[in-house]
């Protein structure tokens, strides 16, 4: 007697497509973010080729924006690098949380998967993994979401580099930089301690705005992290 096996496990392609579809609404945000990063790189004095290379090498919008802002303000190289990497410290958390999903992959595959790790790819993938969808091919799903984000962001970056010089100054396109930080901030604040840290960082940055190389941002952020952490620990203990 022969047995017919009907697989209910989605194929790699179906899981990849599911990731791509789930991330689609976010791509509408990744595109303008990329445009602003492209414009910012040109304003920092990079050539078009350098701006493309920089974007692919880093592939982290907020730290690209920070690096270009610091370069434009004339900051020394060490300050630019430290500032850009400081904001990327959050990737340590994502890396620790998602690492069990990638543990059986080869070294080169792990490096590729790591390169694609972004805020949105992490958030979308962890939500899907926690839902424990039947038979979801997790790596394929992650790849669908992460590659969609990479394509949208880099396309936006290329558009920004192409349009950069032709955008009239009267449009105030540089205002989109604080707008992006505002949107990122509202999603970063998840409790009262984080709100307190944000208020302290904002006040400190305002009071120390006279310091060169945006050092006021650095100092106020460190102070805000210490106070926010202490507040959270105290609330937890109470």
């Amino acid at each position: 007697m022969s047995t017919i096996c009907i697989s209910t496990t989605p194929s790699r392609r179906a899981s990849f497509t599911a990731g791509l579809l789930d991330v689609a609404p976010i791509l509408l945000s990744a595109l303008p973010f990329g445009i602003i990063c492209g414009v910012g790189a040109l304003e920092a004095g990079m050539s078009a080729g350098q701006a493309v290379l920089f974007s692919f090498a880093v592939f982290a919008g907020s730290s690209q924006l920070i690096a270009t802002q610091f370069i434009a303000s004339g900051a020394p190289t060490a300050v630019v690098v430290l500032a850009a990497l400081a904001v990327n410290l959050r990737f340590l958390m994502y890396s620790a949380a998602i690492s069990p999903e990638f543990s059986r992959r080869s070294l080169s595959e792990k490096l590729g998967l790591s390169y694609l790790l972004t805020d949105q790819a992490f958030a979308i993938s962890m939500r899907a993994f926690n839902q424990d969808r039947t038979g979801l091919r997790r790596i394929s799903y992650y790849m669908g979401a992460a590659l969609g984000l990479l394509a949208a962001f880099q396309l936006g970056n290329l558009l920004g580099i192409s349009l950069g010089g032709s955008l009239p100054a009267g449009w105030g396109i540089d205002f989109s930089v604080p707008l992006i930080f505002c949107a990122l901030l509202t999603t970063a604040i998840r409790n009262r301690s984080m709100a307190l840290a944000a208020v302290i960082a904002a006040l400190g940055s305002m009071l120390l705005c006279g310091l060169p190389y945006m050092l006021g941002v650095f100092i106020s952020a460190v102070l805000a992290i210490i106070v926010g952490y202490a507040h959270a620990e105290r609330s937890h203990a109470a």
């Binding site: 959050r90 604080p178 604040i189 984080m194 840290a197 944000a198 941002v217 926010g228 952490y229 620990e233």
Partner: peptide, 18 residues
């Protein structure tokens, strides 16, 4: 737990500076 405060602190500081 301390790292969780980095985005809120850095984005708030940069928002005001920009």
């Amino acid at each position: 737990r301390a790292l969780a405060f980095v985005p809120a602190a850095v984005f708030a500081g940069l928002l005001v500076a920009s």
